[in-house]
């Protein structure tokens, strides 16, 4: 049996747990805790350690889906979870007050991994009239010398999660 791992990371409330739930065949094992401080105004619960989901592939191997906690103070969990990942999905909540800064945080932190494993960015809760234009996200990545796929997605939609995995697959095929 091989260790096949996809990691979902990104800002708090971006939909990591939801995205994993959309494709996991088991109920997602989560470590949700009640938000107590300032975060409580944005979200009732948050992931304190990790989320975990599974998908059994046709050859019997298991795809393990891991979600990291979103807040920077849980950063110590990130290297633990990313270890050995086959692909990385970064989700950014467009409705947050500084979504571009959120993206920058995860790009900077996972930069070494991004250079080695296929990575895709999903922008959630996009509003046509508010928040940064999708181009601003691309411009930021270009400044960082990256050309990653960026999709505006709804983390609840299985189709949208599949789209991100399709992009990862194509990146591996044509790198």
């Amino acid at each position: 049996m091989k260790e096949i791992k996809l990691v979902f990371t990104g800002s708090m409330g971006a939909g990591k747990t939801t995205a994993i739930s959309a494709i996991s065949e088991i109920p997602v094992i989560n470590t949700d805790v009640r938000t107590i401080g300032e975060d409580a105004q944005y979200k009732k619960t948050t992931t304190a350690a990790m989320d975990y989901g599974e998908l059994t592939l046709d050859d019997g191997n298991k795809l393990r889906l891991y979600g990291t906690p979103g807040q920077e103070r849980f950063q110590y969990m990130w290297p633990i979870i990313i270890k050995g990942a086959l692909g990385l999905i970064i989700l950014v909540d467009d409705a947050n007050s500084h979504p571009l800064k959120d993206l920058a945080l995860f790009i900077n932190y996972f930069r070494d991994h991004i250079n080695k494993i296929p990575t895709v960015v999903g922008i959630t809760r996009r509003d046509l009239e508010q928040g940064p234009n999708i181009q601003e996200y691309h411009d930021y990545l270009h400044k960082e010398g990256l050309k990653l796929p960026i999709f505006s997605i709804d983390a609840r939609q299985r189709d949208n999660i599949i789209l991100m995995i399709q992009a990862l697959t194509a990146m591996v095929e044509f790198n």
Binding site: I4, L55, D58, L63, L86, K116, I162, I165, T169, V172
Partner: peptide, 19 residues
């Protein structure tokens, strides 16, 4: 390519399962 054909086939099997 920095990716192996094995990685590609794993991703393809993930997609097969999901689609």
């Amino acid at each position: 390519s920095i990716y192996s054909s094995e990685q590609h086939s794993i991703f393809k099997s993930i997609l097969n399962k999901l689609e």
